[in-house]
Design a protein around this nucleic acid. Sequence first.
DNA 1: CGGATTGTTGAGGATACTCAAGTTAGGTGG
DNA 2: CCACCTAACTTGAGTATCCTCAACAATCCG
Lengths: 236, 236
Amino acid sequence: MSGKINQALVRSLPLFASMDTEELDDILGSAASPRYEAGSAVFEQGQAAERFFVLLNGKLRVTQVTAEGQRVIVRMVVPGDLFGIAKALKRPDYPGTATAMVESLALAWPMAMWDVFMTRHPALAVNAMQTMGGRLQEAQARIRELATEEVERRVAHTVLRLGNQSGKKEPGGIRIDFPVSKQDIAEMTGTTLHTVSRILTAWEAAGLVEGGRQRLLLREPHKLLLIADGVTPGLL
Amino acid sequence: MSGKINQALVRSLPLFASMDTEELDDILGSAASPRYEAGSAVFEQGQAAERFFVLLNGKLRVTQVTAEGQRVIVRMVVPGDLFGIAKALKRPDYPGTATAMVESLALAWPMAMWDVFMTRHPALAVNAMQTMGGRLQEAQARIRELATEEVERRVAHTVLRLGNQSGKKEPGGIRIDFPVSKQDIAEMTGTTLHTVSRILTAWEAAGLVEGGRQRLLLREPHKLLLIADGVTPGLL
DNA sequence: CGGATTGTTGAGGATACTCAAGTTAGGTGG
DNA sequence: CCACCTAACTTGAGTATCCTCAACAATCCG
């Protein structure tokens, strides 16, 4: 469950950037570094929140299931992100489920350390707050999209966001090189996988994207951006 | 622009609850307490964020306008709420417009004080973080609603939320006693004022709500809750 | 080489939007 | 106090978007 921790790797994270060696030692001393294989859950919705985490490596998907059983993807967790910080939300349990989409490595601390960290390392508190601030802004952007945009534009926004977050530049465009199913995209945009499939098929025919199964290549990010911004009428 | 500040009033706010008199003096010393009349703006989207605020009294609406000119209500600000905390979002400008819906009174500090406050008053930092945490959870709840629920359920959630936030119990039900137009409700739920009108008319016919113009009385909150939770099929 | 997961595509239909008049209520000024 | 004006709201008709249902195809995995 716990391996040795790469100090340099940790140091490179913005969250810990402003920290001296002593502080960092203090913090890392109480950390575990669990590894999760693709498909496994880090924690599940409703579980008692016993630990909080920083993702070192890999990619997680945080989902919530509604009372009716519909699943919504709340956000993606990328390396450097804090997650599972239920304490900051004043919650005793995790409000969602975090699942590894690829093999992932995290740092984990007992939730009781949260308050200690925040008071002992003010820089960390400031960072944590900005993390939450960023997340809040992203959530509000999504609300705006869901409230005002049609599905095709929302899908465009979503794939571009995925590209920015964790796309690799390739000769042919930007590759999203971890498995994202159409179902995933549907759950990120508030639509059905059928509609996503139709949209992506149309985009593929127009040469905007490429690659069907779980791997997406954005051939013409600029044109996608035009769709996302509502400049281009849309292809359906 | 500045009146005298009621210490007891401030002390009763959860945000400042855990603070001793000395600390409170320090904080209030640098505060202005501007008053805003109904309809006036506290700040506007895009303006340089020069101050942050706590609402003492009244009710604000925070809106964002999309590139296409559509307006979305981001949230309502009720007494005790922090708002305009662009600094916590790492932003130089206000991301939205805050408008007084009724005559309102706030506390205001220069944005430069933000960092000072956060470092000098850890309790305040913790509170601020929980404020943001709460806001984040609310935003995610809205995302879930927008992504999975039909309009009627979303409207039900919205009016119930308004009722909880600032409804007054009355013999006949719960009164939302500040002006909320159908347009407002539409902008909170991501629909059009036409659809809101139709829904409320149907509810009124069924005896669930009452009162047309800008004042809403929830006659049967329990039944509205059933609609919100999708138990009742809906009346349209 | 099955079985399962994931994705495609079509047809039909419902929800909710747009467009288009009207109506009511509230405020304002004569 | 009444007439008018505007903002808020109502209501109808037509329609577009997108969902549901359904069947099938492709890919992956053991």
